[in-house]
Design a protein around this nucleic acid. Structure first.
Length: 826
RNA sequence: GCCGAAGUGGCGGAACUGGCAGACGCACUUGACUCAAAAUCAAGCGGGGUUCGACCUGUGUGGGUUCGAGUCCCACCUUCGGCACCA
């Protein structure tokens, strides 16, 4: 260590100095030896160009934890990498003629420099970029693993299509009918695409949410809603004069006797068969055509008028043999349940409206206890629980019980069975884009679909490629890529030209960090087991479903295949809030953008970090305040001056017995240490941790102002050392510089977190609050540990308080030792 | 419609298990230093009231429990977030 000491706080000098020092000494390389291990991870960024304040916030949070835990004696894994595949790189290629790889790697270089300028303690030896063949080779391996386990399959389906991104999207990636990335309205296309069978894991993904007590309730609820479990029954209706059966899913089997019609989705495979050659053929076909043309958004909108058309066919209600008409309706979705619903207008609001519109019969089968409902009196459906009527031998049964009994009855008769349905659908992973991981599959005329053998991975992205807007996917036009030999028979074959959804790249990267340089496997199990699951994951709430659900799924697949003992990837999750300015999200169009660069340049990284952590608790949105930053800058200056001024004086021998003031200073710093430790460790309240440090600094100024030359060197030295140690995780450069100023040779970041002394916190006197009938009437200095009676004696002797007692009778005395006494008077 | 979170000074926020509401910071006011300003240091800072000792009032609204409620219970209002013809 070394370097010239400067007299003023000059972040522009000390920050680069220490960054260089840390880099040269490979300071933050992961120490794998200790038993106490902790994995701190911030969501890796997409290399879009430059860091924004959201990045600065998430890295600052992670870095405080990483540095604190190292001081607490943990081996900390704190890596960083790049979610480097994605559309913007390709758009840059189209717009500016730069190759996506070049654009991406140059952005990575810039952003990495910025991260270093923030003083974040990453282990750069483990850096990964998902667009690197050494990485995507293993993403392809992961695809093959899912393929082998029957979890990757290809099917033709109506899929979400973003016309602007010119690719398909998974359901999770459509928000409000719009593309999650570009906001364009999403349409529908019939395409043959690759899917991951995430629905096989629906129940486990739901159940294991219970294990995630370290996640915000909000995120767990969102995932629960997304998975959307419903329990009910599958009931088969047979079509009259035909051998066909129509299965329907219902959560209300107790209303089975109230069915008066059946509705099929426009896409239902039976529609064509039912109408072929009948007088209804033309009308129904026109209706189906019209419905199918509607986009998903209009079709699923609540305001959408419910329309339907009769097919001419009837089916039989299995429980009572009643023939009910079959219709085709625009509100029934082929993708949920069975694509067919039973209509129970008396007990379902939608069915009620539909039945009224088309004059379908309404049959009441559930009634509240005391009132007898009549179909003709209903103005709305009766959707609540009740007692069954008009339901054969189930009459008089409460609906809740009837649901169970009717399922049993259906099962016994073979008409249906218990059934659970999920809203979650399989994960569509094909993308018609270039800048992504190629799907490692070839199509051979003889052998059909053949996965590329593991030893032939990676299937490399060709470098030489044409980018033009509005065309086909670039890979689909690249002959050098397409034509290949079949790995099975050696004959002519064509490669799959779709690439994988980039969410696959990011659904396993946290495993790769544990063994980033492994050339023979994605990661060694023992390395992964040493670190996984991630102890603390930090990132934006926008990934509450997408990335976090996918990562949970992939982790479970890896677990089932024996590659990891982890069943969940992230033990604790911190969803950090956004960084706003003037109450709105920072955006170029609003002109309210503040960049990390300008903050570093003007005040230094330490000031920016302290402000961002001090302004709000991490999970809340934060309003950027230029004045507030000034305040943090002032605070660091204040710390600097205090330490600089007394650094030499405190080296003097301490031969004086500490007096009251000395002890008070000691108490202030031990108290602050206690609070800071608890705030970081237990509650992640960095804002209150910093405020506790500020209070301690204020106490130190009061002390030196009062003591002048007569400060106690030993007590002051301890105070300054505590101060620098406590501040080091927040302001790491200033910490280093001041630690050196205090005469230490070794880095502050290699020190142990100090331990507060319970004895130093002890006081001889305390101020207790005196209440009369619960109102504060005074305060009193009393010796610590004084009992209730003695306090009461002291209190009643006080003139200020005695006034309130005059002519009254004390009926009750409540005492909280060393804190409060409340006299209840009448 | 269903589910969830949150409402505290001029502002960001604090108050951990029911026990001094407003820590800490910003802004503002005053004083010291200065020729002056900045910086720094010191003091004040919810509202009302004042004989400067009080006292009253105050954490979205209305009730309740309690010696005591920002904190617990009930009802409501507002804001934000998620899900939503899901059968």
């Amino acid at each position: 260590m070394g370097g010239r000491m400067v007299a003023e706080y000059r972040p522009e000098i000390i920050e680069p100095k220490w960054q260089k020092y840390w880099e040269e000494h490979k300071f933050y390389q992961t120490d794998e030896k200790k038993d106490k291990k902790y994995y701190v991870l911030e969501m890796f960024p997409y290399p879009s160009g430059r860091l924004h304040m959201g990045h600065m916030r998430v890295y600052s949070i992670g870095d405080v934890l990483a540095r604190f835990l190292r001081m607490r004696g943990y081996s900390v894994l704190h890596p960083m990498g790049w979610d480097a595949f994605g559309l913007p790189a390709e758009n840059a290629a189209i717009e500016r003629g730069v190759h996506p790889a070049e654009w991406t790697y140059s952005n990575i270089e810039t952003m990495k420099k910025q991260q270093k300028a923030l003083g974040i303690s990453y282990d750069w030896e483990r850096e990964v970029a998902t667009c690197d063949p050494d990485y995507y080779k293993w993403t392809q391996w992961l695809f093959l693993l899912l393929y082998k386990r029957g979890l990757a399959y290809k099917k033709k389906a109506a899929v979400n299509w973003c016309p602007k991104c010119e690719t398909v999207l998974a359901n999770e990636q459509v928000e409000d009918g719009k593309c999650w990335r570009c906001g364009e309205e999403v349409g529908v296309k019939d395409l043959e695409q690759w899917f991951f069978r995430i629905t096989d894991y629906a129940e486990r993904l739901l159940q294991d949410l219970k294990l995630l007590s370290g996640w915000p309730q909000r995120v767990r609820t969102m995932q629960e809603n997304w998975i959307g479990k419903s329990e009910g029954a599958l009931i088969r209706f047979s079509v009259q004069n035909s051998g066909q059966e129509i299965p329907v899913f219902t959560t209300r089997p107790d209303t089975i006797y109230g069915v008066t019609y059946l509705v099929l989705a426009a896409e239902h495979p039976l529609v064509e068969e039912l109408i072929a050659g009948t007088e209804y053929e033309k009308e129904v076909r026109a209706f189906v055509e019209k419905t199918r043309k509607l986009s998903e958004i209009t079709r699923t909108s609540t305001e959408m008028e419910k329309e339907g058309v009769f097919t001419g066919a009837y089916c039989l209600n299995p429980v009572n043999g009643t023939a009910v008409p079959i219709l085709v309706g625009n509100y029934v979705l082929m993708s949920y349940g069975t694509g067919a619903v039973m209509g129970v207008p008396a007990h379902d609001q939608r069915d009620f409206a539909f039945a009224k519109k088309y004059n379908l019969p309404i049959r009441v089968v559930i009634t509240p206890k005391d009132v007898a409902l009549k179909a003709e009196d209903l103005t709305d459906a009766y959707i609540d629980e009740g007692i069954l009527i008009n339901s054969a031998h189930f009459d008089g049964m409460p609906s809740e019980q009837a649901r169970e009994e009717i399922i049993k009855y259906l099962e016994a008769k073979g008409w249906g069975e218990r059934k659970i349905t999920y809203r979650l659908r399989d994960w569509l992973i094909s993308r018609q884009r270039y800048w992504g991981t190629p799907i490692p599959v070839v199509y051979c005329e003889k052998c059909g679909t053949v996965p590329v053998p593991e030893e032939e991975l990676p299937v490399l992205l060709p470098k030489n490629i044409q980018f033009t807007a509005g065309g086909k996917s670039p890979l689909a036009q690249c002959e050098e890529f397409i034509f290949t030999k079949c790995p099975a028979c050696g004959g002519e074959a064509r490669r799959e030209t779709d690439t994988m959804d980039t969410f696959i790249d990011s659904s396993w990267y946290f495993f790769r960090y544990t063994d980033a340089k492994n050339e023979t496997a994605p990661f060694a199990r023992e390395k992964a087991d040493a670190w996984m699951p991630v102890d603390q994951y930090i990132g934006g709430i926008e990934h509450a479903i997408l990335h976090l659900l996918y990562s949970r799924f992939i982790t479970k697949v890896l677990h089932d295949a024996g590659y990891t003992s982890a069943i969940e990837p992230f033990t604790r999750l911190l969803a950090q809030g956004m960084v706003n300015k003037d109450g709105a999200k920072m955006s170029k169009s609003k002109g309210n953008v503040v960049s990390p660069d300008e903050i570093i340049e003007k005040y230094g990284a330490d000031t920016g970090r302290v402000f961002i952590l001090f302004a709000a608790p991490p999970e809340k949105d934060l309003d950027w305040s230029d004045r507030g930053v000034e305040g943090s800058y002032r605070f660091l200056h204040r710390v600097w001056r205090l330490v600089d001024r007394y650094a030499d004086a405190v080296q003097a021998p301490s031969n004086r017995v500490p007096d009251e003031e000395d002890l008070a200073l000691r108490r202030a710093f031990h108290g602050a240490l206690k609070k800071v430790t608890e705030d970081i460790e237990e509650r992640y309240n960095f804002n209150t941790a910093i405020s506790a440090i500020m209070e301690a600094v204020n106490a130190a100024y009061s002390y030196v102002n009062s003591k002048g030359e007569k400060i106690h060197p030993g007590v002051m030295k301890e105070a300054l050392e505590f101060l620098v140690l406590m501040l080091a995780p927040f302001a790491p450069h200033l910490g280093e510089e001041l630690w050196q100023r205090l005469g230490h040779q070794e880095s502050v970041h290699l020190q142990s977190w100090p331990q507060y002394d319970e004895k130093a916190l002890q006081v001889s006197e305390v101020e207790i609050v005196v209440q009369i009938n619960g109102k504060v009437r005074g305060r009193l200095q009393v010796p610590v540990g004084l009992d209730k009676e003695a306090v009461q004696k002291l209190v009643t002797a006080e003139a200020q308080i005695a006034r309130h007692l005059a002519g009254k009778e004390i009926v009750k005395v409540i005492s909280v030792p060393d804190k409060l006494i409340n006299l209840v008077v009448r």
